[in-house]
Design a protein around this nucleic acid. Structure first.
Lengths: 333, 333
DNA sequence: CTGTCAATATGAAACGTTTCATCACGGTGA
DNA sequence: TCACCGTGATGAAACGTTTCATATTGACAG
C-alpha cells in the first residue's frame, strides 16, 4: 500500500520518532537530518495516514455540520462558507441533514460524535440534548439557540424591526406578516421585532395605527405561497398593502401568489423578505430583504469551534436592510 | 474516556477477540457467551471506536462528495439525496466544493482520498486525473464524465432533443438556445440534442426551417440574464419566439431579463429550462423544463460506490419534459 | 486408553501514528 | 581527568480495533 512513516525512517536511516518530529515541524531536530528526511518524504511520496494520527490523538480534523435541509439556500450558503473556510485550515466538513425531525437530529448527532470531530456546527431543530454533546466536542449552534451552547446568529428581533420600519417609512399602514413556525425561537423573535416597531408607531402616531395581520407557516416557498394567497383574497380595502416575511423563500412564494392573483408588486403590494439568499436579487421584481451576513456567521461559527479561546455565550450579528424593487410607497405606479 | 472493547472483555470475563466476534455478529460464538457480552456492552454503554476499526481495516465508512458548488440547487438536491441514502446505510458524507476550479478540485480530491473513504461521488470540472484516483477508491462520477470512471447521468442529448421537440410542436420556428460552457461535455450534448431535433425538422419541413441562435455562457442565473438580455434586444421580427436553456438557473435569469425588458412569457417568448430544480415550479410563470431524476441519480451513484458488484461504465437515465406555464404557442395571449 | 475432529475461545500481532522516557555524544567548567 | 549538561536522536509503548494462528475442550471412533 502507501508508504508509511516506517518506510521513510528506514530509507532515511533515522527512527520513526525523528520523522514524526520532522512532520510536526516545531520540534528539535538538526538541520541536516531534517533536510534528509524531507527529501526522502518527497522521494517516496509519503503522505501521513490520517487514521493513525487520529487514533493516536483521539481526535480527527473533521467538522460536523448539521443542518435541517441542505436544499434550503440559506443553509447551502452556510455550508459553502463553512466548507471553504474549513478546507483552508485543513479541516473537512461532514454534512448531515435532520429534515426538522428531532429523532433524526439525535441520530445524526450521535453518529457524528462517534467520529470524534474536532467540532460541531449545529442548526438545532429541537431542544433535545444529546448525551455527551455538552461534554466532549466543541459545539456552536447557528441561527437557532440550544440551551447551554454558544450561538452565532443575527439579531432577529432587530431584523423584524427593520422590516416594519422600512414599510412604515414608505407610508404603509395596513401591514401583514408571514411568520415561521412558532416552534422555533427565530420566528418569534423576528415577529416580535416587527410588532415592536408597530407598537412604537402606535404610541407616536396613535391615529394612524392599524393592527397587523399575522399568519404563521413554515419557512419554505410553499408556505409563503399558500398563506400569501389566503391573505390576498381579502377585499382590496382591507388587505395589507405590504407584507413582511420570515424568509426569502416565503417572500418568493408570496411573490408567486401575488402574480397568480394579478396583484402587482410593488404597486399594489410591497414585500420584504428575510435572509438575502442569492435568488432574492434574481426574482422579479428584485426582493427587498433583511440580509443575514452568512459569511460572517460561518466565520464566527468556525472560529468558535476551532479557536482555542473559550466560547462566548452568544455572537449576535447585525442584519441590514437591502432595498431592491419589491417595495414602494403604496399606490406607486 | 469512553469504554473500550478491552473493558467489555474484562468485565464479561472473555477475551477481546471474542467481543469483537460478537460485534461482527456473523461468526462462531456460543449463545450464552454472546448474551453475556451483549449484556455487558449494554451495561457499560460501550460504543466501538470507529477510528480503531478504520485504522485496522484501512477503510472508513465515509463517502466523499465533490461538487462544483453546493449552492447550486441541483447539487444541493443531489447532496441531500446522497446524504439521506448514505446515512441509512451507516455511512457519512464528506462535502467538498471545487468552485469549478481544476486546481481546487485536485486539492480537494487529494485530501479526501487521504481519508480513505469507502467511495467517492464526484461531479468533475476537469479531466485532470488525480493520482491514485483510478486505483484505490471506488469512484462514480455524476452529471459529467471523467475518462475511465463510471458515470451516472441523464441522457443529456435526449434532454436537448425533447426541449426542441416541444417548442417545434407548439409551432415555434425561430428558436434560441442558451448553452452552458463548452468546456463541459454536458453542455455540448444538450446543445447537440437540441440541434439534432432541428436538423430532423429541416429534412421533414424544409420550407419552415430557421437556423437557431445559439449562445454560450455559464450555468448560473447571471449568465441566463445577460445572454437573455442580449438575445432579446434584437428587433421583434428576428428575435427568437422561444428559447431553451441548459439549466433552470439560466432559464430563471432569462425570465428575469424578459421581465425587465417587457417581453411577456409565454405570450412573446416561450422558455424551457433544464433540471427541474424545486424553484422551477415557483417562479412566475412556472417553468417548463426537462427534469433530471435526481433521486434516481443519487441512488445509482451510491449503489455504484457501495455495491459489491463491478461498476458499469455508464448509467444513463431518461430525462422527461415537464410542462408548466412558460411555454405556449407563439402569440398566445 | 488414545488419537482425531469439530467447535469455540484465546493471545498476540498488526494497522500508522505520536510521545515520553532514555540514551549517545560532545562540550564545558572545575 | 571527570562529572555534568544540553542537544538530538532512539525505542518502545500506547491508541482501539480485527484477525489469524493456537490452545482448550468434549465427544467419539478405533
Amino acid at each position: 500500500m502507501n508508504p508509511t512513516i516506517k518506510d521513510v525512517a528506514q530509507r532515511a536511516g533515522v527512527s520513526v520518532g525523528t520523522v514524526s518530529r520532522v512532520l510536526a515541524k516545531n520540534k528539535t531536530v538538526s538541520e541536516d537530518i531534517r533536510k534528509k528526511v524531507e527529501a526522502t518524504i518527497e522521494a517516496i511520496g509519503y503522505r501521513p495516514n490520517i487514521l493513525g494520527r487520529s487514533l493516536r490523538l483521539a481526535k480527527t480534523d473533521i467538522i460536523g455540520l448539521v443542518v435541517p435541509d441542505i436544499t434550503n439556500p440559506f443553509f447551502a450558503e452556510l455550508a459553502k462558507h463553512v466548507e471553504m473556510l474549513a478546507s483552508t485550515e485543513g479541516y473537512s466538513v461532514l454534512l448531515a441533514n435532520t429534515h426538522d425531525d428531532p429523532e433524526a437530529e439525535r441520530q445524526q448527532i450521535e453518529t457524528l460524535l462517534g467520529r470524534l470531530p474536532a467540532g460541531l456546527i449545529l442548526v438545532p431543530v429541537s431542544n433535545s440534548l444529546v448525551d455527551g454533546l455538552v461534554a466532549g466536542t466543541r459545539t456552536v449552534t447557528v441561527d437557532r439557540p440550544l440551551s447551554g451552547h454558544a450561538l452565532v446568529a443575527v439579531d432577529n428581533r432587530r431584523g423584524g424591526y427593520l422590516a416594519a420600519d422600512h414599510l412604515l417609512a414608505l407610508g404603509h399602514r395596513r401591514l401583514g406578516y408571514i411568520s415561521g413556525p412558532s416552534s422555533t425561537e427565530v420566528s418569534g423573535q423576528r415577529r416580535d421585532g416587527f410588532k415592536q416597531r408597530l407598537e412604537e408607531f402606535r404610541t407616536t402616531h396613535p391615529g394612524e395605527y392599524v393592527a397587523p395581520q399575522v399568519v404563521e407557516g413554515h419557512f419554505d416557498y410553499r408556505s409563503g405561497e399558500e398563506l400569501g394567497k389566503q391573505m390576498l383574497t381579502q377585499a382590496a380595502a382591507t388587505r395589507p398593502t405590504a407584507i413582511a416575511t420570515a424568509s426569502d423563500q416565503q417572500a418568493i412564494g408570496l411573490l408567486r401568489a401575488a402574480g397568480d392573483m394579478g396583484v402587482r408588486v410593488p404597486t399594489d403590494l410591497s414585500i420584504v423578505g428575510f435572509d438575502d439568499i442569492p435568488l432574492a436579487s434574481l426574482v422579479l421584481p428584485r426582493l427587498t430583504t433583511i440580509r443575514q451576513p452568512i459569511d460572517e456567521i460561518a466565520r464566527l461559527a468556525l472560529n468558535g469551534v476551532l479557536g482555542s479561546h473559550a466560547l462566548q455565550e452568544e455572537y449576535k450579528l447585525q442584519p441590514v436592510l437591502i432595498r431592491r424593487g419589491s417595495c414602494a410607497a403604496p399606490g406607486t405606479p
